[in-house]
Structures are given as C-alpha cells and as structure tokens.
Design a protein around this nucleic acid. Structure first.
Lengths: 140, 140
DNA sequence: CTTGCACCTCTAGTCGCTAGAGGATGTAGG
DNA sequence: CCTACATCCTCTAGCGACTAGAGGTGCAAG
C-alpha cells in the first residue's frame, strides 16, 4: 500500500496540484483518504480518473459534460447513448468553431496583406475594424 | 443635436446595454455626457467606436489589444506598425487554434465512429478518454 | 395621472482555474 | 535532536469579459 501524495498524483496525471484540489471541491473527484497529518492520499484509480478528466478537458469538454461521462464510466452496464450524444455535440461545436476561425483567418489575412506599413490613416487593419461593411464576413 | 440613449446606441452598434456600461467602466469608451435626469447621451462617434470594438471582439481581439488599436485609430499620423503586429499575432493565434481544433475533430470523429451504440463498456468514447495511449493525439 | 418601459447604480455570479497568504507536515542531512 | 527545506494544508481573492439581478429613478404615451 504505497501512499500517493497530491504532488505525486499531479506528476502522474499531468493535472496541477491546485487543480486537483479544485476538482475535489466541485465534486469531479471524490475526497481521498488522509494521512495522519491530514494530507491527501490517493490510489491508482484516482490517477486514472484524473487522466480521464485531463484528456476530456484537452478535448474541450466542459466540466458538466465530464461529470456525465464519469458517471457513465462508473456504470459500464449503461447504454452509451449519452456518451455518444455528448461526443457528437462536441464534434458539432468543434466543426462550427473551425468554420468561424477559417472565416476569421481569411479576414485577418486580408487585413495584414492590405496594410501598407505606412501611416494609420492608410492602414487596412484599422479601416476594416472601423467599417464592418468593408470586411469579408459581413454576412449577418 | 439628437440625443442617443444607451438603448439606441445598443441597437445601432449591436453591443448590449450592460456591455456598453462595462466598456465605459474599464475605460474602453469614454464616459458620455448625461441628460438632466443623469442618463447617458451618446454621439455618432461613440457608435462608430462601439462598432469598432464589437467587430474587433468578434475577430477575437482581446480588450487590451483593442485598447491599443483604439489609441492608434485616434491618432492617424502614427505608423501602423503596431496595428499590423497585433493583427499578425492574432492571425498566428487563429491559425494555431485551427490546427488544434482539426486534431480534435479527427479524434472526436474516431470516438463517435467507434461507438457501437451498445453498452458503456464497449464504448470507444469512454475508452479513449480513459486511456490516452489509445487516442489519435498522443503526440506529446 | 398612471402605466410601463427604459434607464440608473451596485453587487455578485459565471467558467475553470491560478496566485498568494499564512501555517502545518514530512524528510534528509548534520 | 535540530534545522532546513520542500511539500502539504485551508482560505480568500483574482483573472477575462461579461451577465444577472436587486432596488430605485426618468420619461413618454394614453
């Protein structure tokens, strides 16, 4: 029975120490047992859970979505329809973001290309920002 | 001299009323004159400024960056090198975000496609989240 | 004159952490 | 055993960019 300190858990999971305590506070991670001196003592299962959370966060899932995914993970007999729905919603969101960012990219490229590196009154960057009508994404 | 109320300014600029007040509070917008009854009274120039800010926010510029852009806009004799630099930095950021999101998209698609719509213990969504080693972006 | 909307200020909440204060614990060396 | 030092503890406050709500005032139409 080796005791895993919060620092060790952090190193193994890649989740920062204050973030681990934060996750405990918001109920994503259940409170671990404590040492005699009141220090948190984790088990391997907690590390797995932290890795799960970190990975989901990296994929942009919100904490509420992760909460649901963790509940599903804890009960393997359930249908995975919810997990599927959450992942699909996230996929749609990511696709939407990519589309917006592509539009932004086009507009920013035009701004940067149009900048004659002269004075501000000839600068397309400022001009485009000031007058929405001149810009690439006035589709709304 | 028609007086523009904050509500009218909001309608014309597309910036919400509390957000206009917020912008005034953080010094993005200078405090307008007031009516006898202490109500804010805007001028057309303020509307242009709000449109400028809104558009810049839509393009993802941070408030600090917008502050700099507004200073540049107010002094058209300045070199537009700063504006150019800010726009270029933003472009690089957007490109980076697009790359990350594309990687995410690939991974989420694999998750969704791999979900057999059965029980959680056969669900790739949960599985991939639990085990980083199985996923598409373990390049770090 | 009254109704009702728009306006005012102020505080607190959102999300997902992060930083810092001020103190206790655990460990390694002398 | 003592000391030094890293790590741990709790608690509160701050970040960015708003948003929501309470509690009160102004103003225009009927």
């Amino acid at each position: 029975m080796k005791k895993i300190t919060i620092g060790e858990a952090s190193r193994q999971s890649g989740v920062k120490v204050p973030t681990i305590r934060y996750y405990e506070g918001i109920g994503l991670l259940s409170a671990p047992s404590r040492s005699e001196g009141n220090q948190r003592s984790y088990e391997p299962a907690d590390i797995s859970r932290l890795v799960f959370i970190r990975h989901a966060r990296e994929l942009g899932f919100e904490v509420d979505a992760i909460r649901t995914l963790l509940i599903l993970q804890d009960d393997p007999n359930q249908s995975c329809a919810s997990a599927d729905a959450i992942a699909k919603a996230r996929l749609i969101d990511v696709e939407q973001r990519i589309r917006s960012l592509m539009a932004l990219k086009v507009e920013l490229e035009a701004m940067v290309a149009g900048c004659g590196h002269g004075r501000v009154d000839q600068c397309r960057v400022i001009e485009v920002l000031a007058d929405h009508g001149q810009c690439a994404h006035n589709h709304h």
